[in-house]
Every structure is written in C-alpha cells, then in structure tokens.
Design a protein around this nucleic acid. Structure first.
Lengths: 206, 206
DNA sequence: TAGAACTTGGACCGGATGGTCCAGAGGGAG
DNA sequence: CTCCCTCTGGACCATCCGGTCCAAGTTCTA
C-alpha cells in the first residue's frame, strides 16, 4: 500500500458502501454549488444524502477530503460533456455554433462557470482540490486549441495564426463573460465577450 | 431621523471615534483581501485594529455592516485611482498604454481583481454589499466607454464602432484575464486577453 | 449458519466565533 | 471644575460545527 494519504480513508468494499459514498459526494456537490465551498456544511450534506457523520468519516479523512471529491466529481462531469462536444468541431462554423450554444445554455441560469466559481473559492483553499480545477482549465484550453488546430489545418485560419494564444483568448473571454453575466444577472456580457472573441477569429481567416 | 437602518448603528461624534471607526474599516478590508469575505474573522479584525468588540458593535449593527463598509471602502479606493487615470485618455495609444500598465502592475501580485474577487464572493452574499460592487463595475465600464467615445470623436475609430459593446468587451477581457492569471499564478492569460481585445480595437480603426 | 468484515446511527465533545452587557475611562461643553 | 455624553475594555453567552467514539446492524464468506 502506498503512503499517499496521511489519514485513514476507507474505500467502499460492498455495493452498499459504494452507493453511500456516491450519495455523499453528490450531495456535497449540490451544497457546494448552492452555497459555495466554504459555506458547505457537513450537516446539510449529511441530511440531504440521508447519511450520518460516521459514514462520512468512514469514507473521507475529513471535510477537505469530501470537498476534494466533490470538486473532482464536478470537474469530471463538466469535462465529460465538453470532450465529446469538441471532438466534432472541425470548421470555424462548428466552433461558433458550439460556443454560441454554450452561451445560450448558460444564459438560462446565469450561475457562474461550473468550474470557474470553484477556482475562485479555492484560490486560498486546500491545494489538492485547487490543483484539480487548474487541470480542468488546462483540459478545456486544450480542447479549444486542438479544435483551432484542426480548423487551421483545414485552411480556415491564416498560417501565422497562433492557436495557443487564440485558445487562451477564447477561454478568458468565456470566463470574463460568464463572470460579469453572473454578477449582473444578465446574459449580455457573455454574449458580447463571445462575439468579440469570435470576430477576432473571423478576422484571421485565410 | 430616517428609518433606513433597521438596527442601531452609531456614527462617530468625536475625532477619536472617527479614527476608531476608520481603523476598523481598514483592518476589515485587509482581512477581506487576505482571506476573503466569508473567512474574515471579527477577532482578527479587532486585534489588527487594536480595537475591541464593543467598539465594533458601537459603530456597526453586525458583521455584515462591517463587511459592507469594507466593500464600499475598497470600491471607492479602486475607483478613486481609476477615475483620474482615465480622464487623460483621448487617443487609442493612451488607452493601450494605460491598460498595459494596469496589466503590468497586476502581474506583480496576481491576486484577483480588487473588486472582482469581492463580486464573486458576494454572489450569494448580503445584498447591499453586492450592489456596491455591481455599481463599481458599472462605473468602470463607463470610464472605458467614455474614453472610447473620445477616441472615436477624435476620428481614431470607425463611425459604426459600438463603443458600448467595445467597452463591455474590454471589461470582460480584463476580468477573464485577471481571473485566469490568478488561478494559474501566471501573468500570461491577462496579457493575452488584453492583447486580443486591443487587437480588435485596432482592427476597427478609421 | 456462524463468524468476520463492513457499514451505520447517533450521542458526545471542544473549540471557534458572532453577539450581548455593563462598568468605567476619556473628553468636550457649560 | 463638573457633568454628561461618548467611547472602550473585556468578561460572558449561545450556538454552530467539525470531529470522535462505540455499539448495533448488515452483508459477505467459509
């Protein structure tokens, strides 16, 4: 056994235990989304999961470990949706459509970015959880860049277009847009930010 | 006497009281910047202000009121710097220089946006404080738009350039850039985001 | 079916933290 | 100089909340 986790932390060994652990993590995710990481209360999570303290401390070493699992779960879920969606992007119009759809869906709730809000709250939080979000952003950026590379390979972008910079620019535009839209409770900022970033792409057309 | 504040909240009536209240607010700002709004502890604020509970509750109805004062103070301070800086912008090159300097200064610390981090933490926080930040963003956007209008009036932007959209685009780029730079602890995202937004402005030149 | 391993309920603990209270010190006005 | 309002120290309180513990219940395995 490796000595990676300093405290005791049991992994479920029966189907029942597995289910309990999962309910716990999902309830934690919900609470984090509703109130934020620092405002997530164990009691609430436990109640909403129909669970009890002993169960939680059976599967997690402490509160931070639960938070980390919740963050990981959220990131996986998010990237799990993003991956397939980006696979099928091979033309500028595809990218445009995909991002517009993303913005449109976001406009329904105007809650912050699913992983961005976590990142903000974790800037001075437990390091392992923070790292997970950083990696999730990197994965997102990669999806964008690979899509841009395909688009470029297809001859839709000038040869000197820097796909790395463009991907990062797109990502920052999305984050900034979602953020301001949340703050103002108005979809406009995200739309404007996205339009601006896409315009810029269009201007680099071959 | 108006009935605007539901709880008792004394305003300082001597020079001494005035000074005490100010120390309290400044210490609160510091604590908020260091640990975030929700992690701001009264005890820490009081200690660092060389003050005591009774003083705090003498000038503020409760914790939230102190937080609100701290948020207001921070916003005022920020806008107080921004205003004069923008006054002297009348050409595209001025704006470019100003924003680049802003980014460069930000790169030294890579802490989040002075008011953006507050906004994020207040998204589910006390409404009055939240409102202050929303207004601060509006003021910032106004500075940007007025500067763009002057630039346009000087003939540096095409007549059909939408200064409103451009200002909002600039703001979201800055926020998204600062945010990602903070998350990654790397000045690059802000630089790239800003370059992108400025490029776009340049492409709308007359 | 019996025992071992896994899982769970829920009482209990202690520290952290926001909030209350009042007696006394400080300082301005008459 | 005195009086009174302002300001301050710090003890005290209630509660929230993460964390501990153990006995009892449940499920797997031999």
């Amino acid at each position: 056994m490796s000595a990676s986790q300093p405290a005791k932390e049991t992994t479920p060994k029966t189907r029942r235990g597995q289910a309990s652990r999962e309910r716990l993590v999902e309830a934690a995710v919900q609470s984090v989304v509703d109130h934020g990481i620092h405002q997530m209360r164990l009691d609430e999570v436990l109640t909403s999961a129909g669970s009890s303290k002993s169960q939680m401390y059976h599967y997690f070493s402490d509160r931070d470990a639960l938070v980390e699992a919740a963050v990981a779960h959220r990131c996986d879920e998010f990237l799990g949706q993003l991956g397939p969606a980006f696979e099928s992007v091979s033309a500028l119009s595809d990218l445009k459509t995909l991002l517009r759809a993303f913005a449109a869906e976001y406009a329904r709730e105007l809650k912050g970015c699913p992983i961005g809000t976590l990142a903000g709250e974790l800037s001075s939080g437990p390091e392992p959880a923070r790292q997970l979000v950083v990696e999730a952003f990197a994965a997102w950026e990669n999806h964008l860049e690979r899509a841009l590379q395909r688009i470029k390979a297809a001859g839709e972008l000038r040869a000197d277009a820097d796909t790395g910079h463009l991907a990062l620019g797109l990502l920052t535009a999305l984050e900034g847009g979602m953020f301001l839209s949340q703050v103002r409770n108005d979809p406009t900022p995200l739309e404007v930010a996205l339009d601006g970033a896409l315009d810029r792409l269009a201007s680099l057309r071959e």
